[in-house]
Design a protein around this nucleic acid. Sequence first.
DNA 1: TATTCATTTGAATGATCATTCAAGCTTTAT
DNA 2: ATAAAGCTTGAATGATCATTCAAATGAATA
Lengths: 193, 193
Amino acid sequence: MTNAQFDREQVLRAAMKAFMYKGYGKTSMQDLKKVTGLHPGSIYCAFDNKRGLLIAALEQYRLDRSGEFQAFFPSSQPVMISLKNYLNDIVQGCLNCDAPQACLLTKALSEISEQDEEIQQIIAHNLQAWQQALAEKLEQAKIQHELTTTRDSDHLARFFVMGIYGLRTFAHTYPKTDVLQQLADQLYSDICA
Amino acid sequence: MTNAQFDREQVLRAAMKAFMYKGYGKTSMQDLKKVTGLHPGSIYCAFDNKRGLLIAALEQYRLDRSGEFQAFFPSSQPVMISLKNYLNDIVQGCLNCDAPQACLLTKALSEISEQDEEIQQIIAHNLQAWQQALAEKLEQAKIQHELTTTRDSDHLARFFVMGIYGLRTFAHTYPKTDVLQQLADQLYSDICA
DNA sequence: TATTCATTTGAATGATCATTCAAGCTTTAT
DNA sequence: ATAAAGCTTGAATGATCATTCAAATGAATA
């Protein structure tokens, strides 16, 4: 019943990419067959159905992004420097049209939120975990006196993620480096103030 | 060939609502038949096809929102008061689950952007027109000395719309009045600063 | 080598979709 | 009242979709 003949991570990353590019609804099983190299039967055996594949891909996305996030914050470096690098990386990601232009989480959230409560919960939970991780970094920055503000770390983190959601949407309408960078810089300095 | 036997605006608003709720892809012609009260043949006669109906609905949405926007800024009232009211109204809109939770423009942008260049252009154009209208209001506020900042009105307007995009996405993950209001207030005061 | 068992495979299935169109109906003009 | 024209109607069409399953294949054991 279960199997692991194929590279699960590679399959999930291929599915992720397809879902990000076309959206969940418009990604057909034929598309998924093509990009994963798996035949329909194998996909159904491993993930139950298309929805199961999305759920597994969301989990892989969470793992990948979580690792990526932590890698941006080495203990050897001031937190706020890392945060700026992280933000700049997101700006670059918005401009790189070939790769995942949008975040899988926000893309899927926008598409599915009204239709599938369970998936909405998964996505909301992942986004909140990301926000919480950011809040922890900001709290650490406050403790290390890199960041001096009376505002609550949770409050700051919420505003920061809101800004990034907005930045990604904005990039869809106007993908120019300088404007996006300016917006990101403004967001960063509003956090510091 | 052409006809106007039915109430075009009413039909387009019904279609808008359906597209906002289910998304373009998942809204079937049967759904559209149900909500518009029009038979498939009539829809094809009036709008060519489903895509044509979307384009017409986007135009109606632009008209509706444009009127709504201007109504928020009566000349009898300070611009910045109107802006705050407008922002608060958006916060309420994010919480009103029954009605268009999301903006049709951003919802369609997220779903269609990679697939249909022409529709992407229409949406991007509409969003930029909205941003431009905001920039004009901010410029007016500066002239009337309601707003004292060295920052460019275009820059401010971009940051503002970015914030609203982000607010709407945030609301999908965490639709609590107080948190959204706090984020909106923060956005407003960051514009003023 | 022969046999058994699990996996892979892709064609078949049934549902749903956007779109079309010919028949029926209403309206308008004479 | 009659005829012509256009509009409404919803069943039919052909394509595409997610999903299934029986046959083919390969691996493992004896």
